[in-house]
Each structure stands twice: as C-alpha cells, then as structure tokens.
Computed example of a mutant assay.
Amino acid sequence: MHMGYARYNPEDGKYYLEKSYYHSSNKKHKKRNVAYASLYKRILTPTVPGSRIDFDFAGPEQNATSDPALDFILIEESGIYEITASVTTNLGPNGFINYFIDRIGGPAITGGSFTAEGSGTNTNGVTTQVLLNAGDRVFLRVGFRTGGITYGFANLTLHRVD
C-alpha cells in the first residue's frame, strides 16, 4: 500500500510528489521520491551507426534531468528504473537497424535493445528495468544498419519504480 503527498520547497517555489510505502514486515513507512524524465524526437533524421538519437525536446521531469541538447537523461537519485524507448524507422528495401538504450561510462543496459527490419515504416521499441545510480546518463543510440534509413517520432522515458 502507498500514500502520496506533495512537499513544497520554498527555495525553488516548486511542489514535489513523494510516496510513502507501508511494509507489513517491519510496520514502518519507507519514503521514496518520485523520479521520471523523457526525451522526444519529431523531425525525420538520417541514421548514423554508433550515434545517439538526436532528440528535439524534453517532456516532464522530476528528480531526473532531460537534456535534449546532449541527448541524454541524467539520473539524480539511485534506484530501479523502468525505461521505455521506441523509434519510428523508415526502411529501404531489405533494411535492417538495431537500437540500444545505453549509459555513458557504465555497463550496457540489459534488455535495452530492439530492431527494425524489412521495408517501409516500422515502429519498434522495448521496455526494461535496471538499477541506475545517481550520475548515470542514459541515452538511445543507433547500432548496426544496412541501407539508407531515417528515423523520427522517437522517445526515451524513464520512471523510478523503487
């Protein structure tokens, strides 16, 4: 069971949502700060193997920072995060491309890859859960590809679940 409440910070004039979880095993409440962030792409862009997806703008965020200029999300609080990524890809004949959710300077994100293949327009994505540490910078990158491929309508979102 959990209860939520808002806390006002007079220094920055913002309200912050917090959750309190009731654990029956120890009869104590354990506070967890909500954390989420997102990046979005809406402009058709050619793919470059090894490059990050070039995001256009950030969505809502709390206790994480979305940076569309550098194309990553900065984790401010350690925890288990659910990460979802999807990309609409325009493939030429017999096209193939793979995408990877990754972090700068850290191990690869387990379960964070997906592919698109065939021809025409495909929307593909993946959802995974992973332990992230404060200071991790999460991004979405292009892996191997064949043929001339463009992408648009991409998103990268994450939400702390514990």
Results as ranks from 00 to 15, higher is better:
Phe144His: 14
Ile109Phe: 00
Val138Glu: 00
Asp56Gln: 01
His2Asp: 09
Arg141Leu: 11
Lys14Arg: 06
Gly147Trp: 02
Asp12Gln: 03
Ser24Phe: 08
Tyr99Phe: 11
Thr127Gln: 13
Thr127Tyr: 04
Thr45Glu: 14
Tyr151Arg: 10
Gly111Glu: 06
Lys19Gly: 14
Gly147His: 05
Arg103Met: 05
Thr115Leu: 03
Ala85His: 02
Glu117Val: 02
Pro10Arg: 15
Glu61Ala: 15
Asp162Glu: 10
Glu61Lys: 07
Ala35Pro: 00
Asn26Ala: 14
Arg42Asn: 13
Ser78Phe: 00
Gly143Ala: 06
Phe100Leu: 04
Phe72Pro: 00
Asn124Ser: 09
Ile75Phe: 02
Arg32Glu: 15
Tyr36Gly: 03
Gly106Leu: 08
Gly59Arg: 12
Asn122Cys: 06
Phe55Val: 01
Ala85Leu: 03
Pro93Ile: 13
Arg137Tyr: 06
Arg52Asp: 03
Tyr15Pro: 01
Thr146Ile: 08
Leu158Trp: 11
Thr157Gln: 14
Asn9Gly: 02
Ala64Arg: 15
Arg145Met: 05
Ala64His: 12
Lys31Ser: 13
Glu76Arg: 04
Val48Glu: 06
Ser113Ala: 11
Pro68Val: 01
Pro10Ile: 07
His29Tyr: 13
Pro68Arg: 03
Asn124Met: 05
Thr115Pro: 05
Ser119Pro: 05
Val34Asn: 01
Thr157Gly: 15
Glu77His: 04
Lys19Phe: 15
Asp162Val: 08
Leu44Asn: 12
Pro46His: 08
Ile101Phe: 03
Asp67Gln: 05
Glu61Met: 13
Asn122Asp: 07
Arg42Val: 08
Leu140Phe: 10
Ala69Thr: 13
Ile43Glu: 06
Thr128Ala: 07
Ile149Asn: 01
Glu61Phe: 12
Ile83Gly: 00
Pro68Ala: 09
Asp136Leu: 05
Val48Pro: 06
Gly112Ser: 11
Val48Met: 03
Leu91Ile: 02
Arg160His: 08
Ile80Ala: 02
Lys31Ala: 11
Thr45Lys: 07
Ala37Met: 14
Asn133Ser: 15
Val130Ala: 13
Leu74Phe: 07
Ala116Ile: 02
Tyr151His: 11
Leu44Trp: 08
Tyr22His: 09
Asp136Trp: 08
Asn26Met: 06
His29Cys: 10
Thr88Phe: 03
Gly95Phe: 07
His159Pro: 00
Thr146Pro: 00
Ser24Glu: 15
Thr150Ile: 02
Gly152Thr: 10
Gly111Lys: 09
